[in-house]
Design a protein around this nucleic acid. Structure first.
Lengths: 223, 223
DNA sequence: TAGATTGTTAATCGATTAACAATC
DNA sequence: TAGATTGTTAATCGATTAACAATC
């Protein structure tokens, strides 16, 4: 199976923690590249990102990029490899539902760094926002969602609505052929198993932070 | 050490995955309680949240709440215990810096479910927003941040600014006595080790979602 | 060459899952 | 009582860390 080809790299499956760290590396590398550097070593990355250098090496190994002892990794090559591994280099077209504050925030992200996603259009039901443009993205009425989504063959849906509306929207998304849903509403979606769902609730982050803070306080009090 | 007291529960340390799941349980329980139910079993929670019942049992055990075989847990008791465990029952006063779309989204969360945080004030530098109110929260100029933060003894800071401004703001926060920082900007902060930092970047979520989606596609193609 | 760094393999650590006794 | 469910203990699984040989 393609044994003779050195440049061939079997797609390794990264663990979720690794997957979560890869964008951090990517972000750092993009900055370092701007500074005019060509190579970077795992220990340097570790120092910058406050994590273990051997873990950096392990994480980066999933991309198939080989570093050189004493020199490190070629930054440009690494960036391209991570982008490719994460699918950030492809045009990942998505529809966004919910053009409130959170939806607008996502649309403005798009203008800057990009998120690996290309939001083709946003949908809402409020008269105040439908028909307007946010960060260059047209906001359409939700009525048009199903037809447009089907016609354009959209595979990724983003939900940034209040919790109550989320399940119905998710169902519509699945019906229209969407395969992956990024759910930023604080509701748990019931969906077929073959649909990829990524829940991003703000709550869990606060929970972890408060717990660490309380833990710290307890240690200070010697409990 | 307080051995005779049955109601005494030594504060167990939950793993980060557990901590991440607890708010999900909490959210479900709050809904179930509204439906008029009094008790809930781990298998039921598991079915609702699509996760393993034994894991639910293990996760809930950190709160110290005891369930009854065949009956399950008392929902109200469980809610109170999780809230208390996560520190959501206390008034966790916080200052928010950055009243753009993301900052506004956070402020509107506050009105609804609450996030376990009480945002006392928001700060920004833009004339367009300074002096206004968002979701009932006053937006002040960043110039006032340090003094007010010190005077009120604020311990939690939230950063929802562009990446460039984040490090300076974080430094100001530390200087003014803040002990925990929730960083929603896509930048890595360099801070003293005793400061609790919770980074929440949108990127990692997209990364995981795209990866799962591509993985799914690959499976469909039998690769 | 010497020393730093990669990259692999093994060891440890921790979380999840399974098994089962206790109990309502 | 019988059966469902808790809750603990053990087994498995997986991720991180450590050790070290390879190599530039």
């Amino acid at each position: 199976m393609r044994k003779g080809n050195d440049s061939y790299h079997k797609q390794l499956i990264a663990s979720e923690p690794t997957l979560r760290r890869l964008p951090n590396y990517l972000h750092l590398l993009q900055q370092i590249l701007l500074d005019g550097n060509l190579n970077i070593s795992a220990p340097t990355i570790g120092r910058e990102l406050n994590c273990d250098p051997t873990q950096v090496v392990k994480d980066l190994s999933v991309t198939g990029v080989k570093g050189k002892p004493k020199v490190g990794y070629n930054i440009y090559e690494l960036i391209k490899a991570i982008e490719s591994y994460l699918g950030f280099n492809k045009v990942n077209e998505a529809f966004l539902v919910g053009a409130g504050n959170l939806g607008k925030a996502l649309m403005s992200y798009q203008e800057g760094q990009g998120l690996g996603l290309k939001i083709l259009a946003a949908f809402d039901v409020s008269e105040h926002i439908v028909g307007k443009k946010c960060s260059g993205i047209q906001v359409l009425h939700m009525d048009q969602f199903m037809e447009l989504s089907k016609r354009l063959g959209i595979k990724i849906g983003i939900i940034a609505t209040p919790a109550e509306a989320a399940q119905d929207i998710a169902d519509s998304m699945v019906k229209s052929g969407i395969r992956a849903i990024w759910n930023l509403s604080p509701s748990f979606l019931k969906l077929p198993n073959d649909i990829v769902v990524q829940n991003t609730t703000m709550y869990s982050n606060v929970a972890i932070m408060l717990h660490k803070l309380n833990q710290n306080n307890r240690e200070l009090l010697n409990l």
